[in-house]
Design a binder for these strands. Structure first.
Lengths: 227, 227
DNA sequence: CCGGGCCGTAACAAGTCCGTAACAACGGGG
DNA sequence: CCCCGTTGTTACGGACTTGTTACGGCCCGG
């Protein structure tokens, strides 16, 4: 069974529902939007793993959504849904940072295959076992070993560490971290992130006072460096 | 050969024809207007890629044209043509949303270069990694490297650098910089911009006394040039 | 050659942000 | 029902950042 969060932005209800049903049946989480502005909002807050994006939308069109996401430095894979014979649109979209496209009418099987491929490629970027100085993080068993010895991490601590591992070398705002690790509907202070970071540093840093992996980015948030 | 649509609004026929001929020869499409109202009309209907705008016009003057375009959310690049020694006019125009200016009498070569630069800028988006002489700026990780070594930037310094990178080759007033980097509700002196610029120059310029990237524009503000 | 505006910059002052400790709230399991 | 682990909030101190003021240099015009 597959897993992953798929966001679909498409204004034609027939296509939208068809896609949603098929992806749900294939084991994905799905959210949908019928116009660009709301879709963009969802892409930012829900942090999906893949975006299926119709180019022709009322209001903010697909190109703009694409551009906004890429200027916001999102690396979310984007698959465009385009009408046949609009190759110049495809070129434009790819130049704006989209990853792939399918032309309508498309085979749902093919689209599922493409989606799985993008998700796989993305997941492979994060190795299941990562070495951090004296520590070894295993994402599949959710274990942390330090000099070979098991160190207990709380769920929040491990979630935070995982998010850092998936987003290395990026300055992450507290808000982004909250949305990704705590979830959208978490009504907590941004200071909670600081606290969690302090706790995590105690366990993975050799000198929590002078952190090597979790660096503070003043006024922004934190940056995870593997170096 | 260049391409693009240039609209020129200028009431002095000598200057107008000179500009038109030069831009036509350089490969642009050109339309002209000798007063504001008609010019504005053309800007809306013809949708040019660049506007050369004289500030002193009969009837609706250049400021009004500027304001009208910007309140209509147009992002048309505007280069003002101004008389020498009227720097306060320039500041006013830039604050109203103009992108750049040249003072009469101006070198046609310089104006052509500026025009090309503005047309180019419209198309490309800001890369996540930018090279500045010996420095490398990474907007994603918010890091600055100089000859490969990390250089620490304070939040304000990095914010300023980012704004410069996003607005290269433009004369920026202190007011614009304050609004963009400090925020609209910042109650600080314009001299704070100078101080921040000095600090930033120390870190990115090879010779802060003779800056290469952050140029001072007397009585106006600063201009960021990429070689 | 003098004077005035403008900007670079040093020194000081004030303000802001973050690490961390202490405490409170919450919830699951025995 | 209580205990304990986890997580969130608040408070405080210290370090760093940033704004202001002041002074001096430079360029220009008279």
């Amino acid at each position: 069974m597959n897993s992953g969060k798929i966001l679909i932005i498409e204004d034609d209800p027939a296509i939208l529902f068809g896609l949603r049903d098929n992806f749900l049946r294939a084991g994905y989480e799905v959210k949908t939007a019928v116009e660009g502005q709301l879709g963009l909002e969802l892409a930012r807050t829900w942090q999906p793993d893949l975006l299926l994006l119709d180019l022709m939308l009322p209001g903010m069109d697909g190109y703009q959504v694409c551009r906004e996401l890429r200027t916001a430095e999102s690396d979310l894979p984007i698959v465009m849904l385009t009408a046949m014979g609009r190759e110049e649109d495809v070129v434009k979209g790819l130049n704006l940072g989209a990853d792939d496209y399918v032309t309508k009418p498309f085979s749902i099987q093919e689209l599922l295959a493409r989606a799985a491929s993008h998700l796989r490629r993305r997941r492979r970027q994060v190795p299941l076992i990562t070495l951090l100085g004296p520590c070894e993080v295993n994402l599949s068993s959710r274990e942390l070993r330090r000099d070979g010895a098991l160190v207990e991490l709380t769920p929040k601590e491990f979630g935070l560490l995982e998010h850092f591992l998936r987003n290395p070398d990026r300055a992450l705002t507290r808000d982004q971290i909250l949305n990704a690790v705590w979830g959208l509907d978490a009504f907590v202070t941004e200071r909670s992130v600081d606290r969690a970071v302090t706790l995590l540093r105690q366990k993975i840093e050799e000198n929590p006072h002078r952190p090597r992996f979790i660096r503070t980015v003043q006024k922004i948030g934190y940056r995870f460096v593997v170096e």
